[in-house]
């Protein structure tokens, strides 16, 4: 059987809220090392990869590898019934056709159980090579969210360019153009405001803002977001979930014809 308890159930709620508009359904894969998901959006332009480590759960048991297909909209409906301070336990029997979500309030006075029907989902897994990226930028997740939201009111695409001192976001549209530059700032007194750049090669790539705005729905999961860029490769937008795992998004760049 599979059983996993997450004291901070809100994490699971936030993860599902962050991905439910991007992907319709997905297989959640569980094995000894943890709970994971990989799914592409319907246009195969972006990909979501979630990984929650077994040791990030207070209790984790997975007797055999299972893949549980769920419609994200339905999962979201159920998780919205969990309180923000509730612990969430997920349970499924081997070869079961449902997954049970148990919500426990902090004082243990309220216990609720919701069963979600599992579905068979055909999913294509892509092999994502472990790569060294030309540039890695770590910036406050709220700053990234603001930038992609602001730029989307001007244009449809953003050019992200990274040099050793700064990362620049630029767009053009019918009404004009916009540029936002964030300088490297390894602020020690306010680590939550730091912007750190690690670069081997300056890089500039163009991406659709619509997807970046969708990724930014993961902002509540982490104080920082990590952007990884290499010439002619998809960008990685990564939210680290402290002590539990990470939620990564991949987005294919715009390519010159």
């Amino acid at each position: 059987m599979f059983e996993a308890r997450l004291q901070q159930g809100a994490l699971l709620k936030k993860v599902v809220e962050a991905i439910k508009d991007l992907i319709e359904d997905a297989n959640f894969d569980c094995n000894n090392s943890g709970f994971s998901l990989q799914a592409m959006d319907s246009s195969h332009v972006s990909l979501v990869a979630l990984s929650l480590r077994a040791d990030g759960f207070e209790h984790y048991r997975c007797d055999r590898n299972v893949s549980m297909g769920m419609k994200l909209a339905n999962l979201s409906k159920i998780l919205k019934c969990a309180g923000n301070d509730d612990a969430i336990t997920m349970k499924s029997e081997d070869n079961g056709d449902t997954i049970t979500f148990m919500f426990e309030s902090q004082n243990q006075e309220r216990l609720s159980e919701f069963d979600l029907k599992l579905m068979d989902i055909d999913s294509e897994h892509l092999g994502i090579p472990e790569a060294e990226y030309d540039a890695t930028v770590k910036l406050p997740s709220s700053e990234f969210q603001r930038i992609v939201k602001d730029l989307a009111s001007i244009g449809d695409t953003v050019e992200i360019s990274v040099t050793k001192d700064a990362v620049k976001f630029g767009t053009n549209g019918d009404i004009g153009s916009a540029n936002v530059m964030c300088r490297q700032n390894k602020s020690v007194d306010k680590p939550e405001e730091s912007t750190e750049i690690d670069i081997t090669e300056p890089v500039a790539l163009t991406f659709a803002l619509r997807y970046l705005n969708s990724f930014a729905k993961a902002t509540p999961l982490s104080s920082h977001v990590v952007l990884k860029l290499s010439k002619d490769l998809p960008i990685v937008v990564e939210y680290h979930i402290e002590n539990v795992g990470r939620l990564s998004f991949f987005l294919a760049p715009k390519v010159e014809e």
Binding site: M40, H44, L47, A252, E257
Partner: peptide
Amino acid sequence: KASQGRLESFFGPS
């Protein structure tokens, strides 16, 4: 004019 790339052009099947 730039066109949108698809992920399969960058990553192969696992």
